[in-house]
Structures are given as structure tokens and as C-alpha cells.
């Protein structure tokens, strides 16, 4: 192992390092930009109440008891209100798989952060829509 071999190694490392300088960064400036998630991403759910039949198969399938159903709360003829507890959910996809009426889907939205723990329980008003209140902090809007 001579002087030139060490020099060669250093050259190899520097070559790799400088090549990275001209590449797109691997990271994102997160709250302001985000990567494109694949179609199958198991993010937060969306509940289509029009198709729901209140069969409660999603509630039965959930391994961590994250879903609660309220059959009294009806918007259409047969549907029910669902409450998703995202402090418990493990995003396994069993509830979506169990739904035979196209009433429950995963969405590629994975940013669920909230300031308050209670806000992570998505009631019928939040789980049926993807719209969210804008989050502002110190005069900057994050979403």
C-alpha cells in the first residue's frame, strides 16, 4: 500500500463527492414541498358516506380498534358515521380491504401532525373530506 494507492483512493472518494454536488438533493424542504407518493400509499383514510352501508366490517377488521362507528348518525339512507383514531391506527389496510362497497379508501396524505392529541381522532366531518384548515405558525403558512 503505497502513497499513490492512497492518492487513488482519495481521488475515488472526491469524485463521488463532487458528482453528488450536481445531483438533485435527496431531501425535501418538507412543509413547503413534498415528494410524490405512490398511488397505493396507505395514508389517512377517506370515507365516502354515500356508498357506506353501515355493515361495520371495517370496525371488525381493524386489529388495533382504531375505528368507532355511530349508526345513529345518518346522512343518507343506510350510512353511518365513522370515527378514526389516528393515535392507534397502524395503516395496515385491512379496513379498506374489508370494505366491499367502495366506501373506504386510503389516500396518499401522510402528513397527519396536529398540535393537540384530540385532533387526531377524525370524526365524520374530517374523515369524509381531504380539505384541512391551513396551519399557520409565526406568520408562515405550512399547508
Amino acid at each position: 500500500m503505497g502513497f499513490f494507492s492512497v492518492l487513488g483512493d482519495i481521488y475515488q472518494i472526491l469524485k463521488h463527492t463532487f458528482r453528488q454536488v450536481f445531483m438533485r438533493p435527496f431531501t425535501y424542504f418538507f412543509p413547503f414541498e413534498d415528494r410524490i407518493y405512490p398511488e397505493r400509499t396507505r395514508g389517512r383514510h377517506i370515507h365516502v358516506r354515500k356508498n357506506c352501508t353501515a355493515c361495520a366490517q371495517c370496525v371488525r377488521a381493524c386489529p388495533v380498534v382504531a375505528i368507532r362507528i355511530d349508526k345513529e348518525d345518518k346522512m343518507y339512507e343506510k350510512d353511518a358515521a365513522l370515527y378514526f383514531d389516528y393515535t392507534r391506527c397502524i395503516f395496515c389496510g385491512l379496513c379498506v380491504e374489508a370494505c366491499r362497497f367502495d366506501a373506504l379508501f386510503h389516500t396518499p396524505v401522510v402528513d397527519l401532525s396536529e398540535g393537540d392529541r384530540d385532533d387526531l381522532v377524525y370524526g365524520p366531518d374530517k374523515i369524509t373530506t381531504l380539505d384541512r384548515d391551513p396551519l399557520e405558525w409565526r406568520g408562515r403558512r405550512f399547508r
Binding site: 407518493y37 405512490p38 397505493r40 400509499t41 396507505r42 397502524i90 395503516f91 395496515c92 389496510g93 386510503h106
Partner: peptide
């Protein structure tokens, strides 16, 4: 992730 929708689980 492309196949299952999740990277690890």
C-alpha cells in the same frame, strides 16, 4: 412502497 403502499410495514 410502490407495491404495497408502505416502506417497512
Amino acid at each position: 412502497e410502490e407495491l404495497t403502499g408502505s416502506r417497512h410495514t
